[in-house]
Amino acid sequence: MITLYDFELSGNCYKLRLLMSILGVEYKIVPVDFYPGREHKSATLLKLNPLGQLPIIDDDGLILRDAQAILVYLAARYDASGNWYPRDNPALLGEIGQWLAFADGITATASAARLHDGLFYDLDVEAARAGAHRLFRILDEHLWFGQQVGRDWICAADHPTISDIACFPYVLLSEEGGISRQDYPAIRRWGDRVKRVPGFIVMSGIFPAGPARAI
């Protein structure tokens, strides 16, 4: 059984809850008092992750940190369809890896701005916002050109992959860090598509989409 060391308002923890919900994987939650308790810096948790960050999972003794790494593990291990992380498609895996790294960039910028605005972190919020806008411009352009050739998702496949899950939370939470998505219409449309993946769940600040049109 998987144990997730979780903070409810963390987009990185939500990524994992989201994928596990989509895959129908059962898991247990250990709530961590990230704010204001700073429990992720406690001795117990530092032993699990010396970086002092969430999320962490423990899958029957296998301890993993880093949301992107855990998405890789969960999809490779628990996704029977083989779509979320297609192990036998090197080109697609390369692409996925590239966008997983991009997702960490979104955490470093958009999530940082949100921590500043919401949890009063002391950091250069203007730099964080500018960095997020730089990434969002790249993602919007990528998604727009994808749509021109009928591609709905971040990677070149006719189905979503873990790179969509990895990028989704902090893009959709960006307004909480003062980063408007108004200039990124292709990102906004992609957000609706992710929300319509069967098994989708919400977190505080992320709203559900309505049903797609039949036909």
């Binding site: 998505r181 108004q182 219409p185 609706d192 049109r213």
Partner: peptide, 16 residues
């Protein structure tokens, strides 16, 4: 204020 392709069904576009 938008391109036609910005308005797929069941989507709400943010314009200004």
């Amino acid at each position: 204020i938008a391109a036609s392709h910005d308005l797929p069904f069941r989507h709400v576009f943010h314009g200004q």
